[in-house]
Simulated assay, not measured.
Amino acid sequence: MTPRPLFLLLALTTAATAGDEPAPEPGAADRAFAAALEACRAASHQSPHPFMKGFTIDHVVAGEQDGACAYSQTMPGEMRMECKLSKDGRAGLAAEFLALAEGRMTGSTSAQPAWTSECEILTKDGKRLPMGQG
């Protein structure tokens, strides 16, 4: 009985094909999350913070709550942004994820996007602060 060579052949074949899967298309995760956000479909996504090296942002769409789309993201300093997004708010934020997917997102000191008026910052000590000026 010689099961060893067969086992070794299967192990080598599996190891060779495991790494042959194509790498995900750049920006695919951002595009998928943008689609889920726009549809207000439950989803999560992680992305590096654009300015704080080593900080990963956890994005979550929890779905519809009280007639709005619940979206949140973690922020540095143990804070989080919580939003109740309208259809227009979802479209605005989704457009930002699409710009990120296409490599068009850049840092800016310009006015905050309109969708931020539908968000609050929850601080480490539990205070809620309005984010956008509307």
Rank of each mutant, 00 (worst) to 15 (best):
A95G: 13
A29P: 08
R90G: 02
A99F: 03
P3E: 01
Q112M: 14
A70W: 07
E64M: 08
K124H: 11
L100N: 15
I57H: 08
A18M: 09
L129T: 12
E102L: 00
L98T: 13
D66L: 07
P3F: 09
A42T: 15
C69L: 04
A43F: 09
C40M: 09
G103R: 12
S117H: 09
W115K: 04
G92C: 00
M79Q: 12
L93D: 00
E78F: 13
V60S: 04
E96W: 05
E118G: 02
K84S: 13
G67R: 00
E38R: 04
E78W: 13
K124R: 15
S110E: 14
T56D: 11
G107V: 09
P22I: 10
A111G: 08
T74P: 02
M52T: 11
H59E: 08
Q73V: 02
Q65G: 05
A99H: 14
T14M: 07
S47T: 15
H59K: 06
A28W: 09
G54N: 15
L85N: 04
M79H: 06
G77N: 14
A29D: 15
T14H: 10
W115P: 00
C69Q: 08
K124L: 06
G103Q: 14
P113G: 02
Q46E: 15
T17E: 12
G77M: 13
F55W: 08
A32Q: 15
L98H: 08
D30M: 09
A111Y: 10
T109L: 14
Q73I: 03
E120V: 13
E25G: 08
A28R: 14
A114E: 03
R31F: 06
M75L: 12
A42M: 10
G92W: 00
Q73M: 15
R128D: 02
P48T: 01
G77S: 11
P48H: 01
R104V: 06
G134H: 03
L93G: 05
E102C: 00
E82H: 07
P130D: 00
P50K: 06
L37V: 09
E25T: 12
C119A: 13
G103I: 09
R128H: 12
P48Y: 03
S44N: 13
Q73A: 08
Q133E: 10
A114M: 04
E25V: 11
G54M: 02
Q73E: 13
A32R: 07
L98Y: 06
V61N: 03
S117C: 15
K53P: 11
A95Y: 02
A94E: 06
G67S: 14
L100K: 15
I121P: 00
G77W: 06
S47D: 13
A18S: 06
S108M: 09
Y71M: 00
H59R: 04
P5A: 12
A62P: 05
E38G: 04
L37D: 03
R90D: 02
A114Q: 04
M79I: 05
Q133C: 03
L98F: 01
L100G: 10
A35C: 09
T13Y: 02
T14L: 12
E25F: 02
A36T: 06
E120F: 10
A36G: 13
R4N: 07
C119E: 00
L122P: 00
G134S: 08
G134A: 11
C83M: 01
T2P: 11
T116V: 06
A42G: 07
T74D: 04
A43H: 12
F97Y: 15
G134R: 11
C83V: 03
S44H: 15
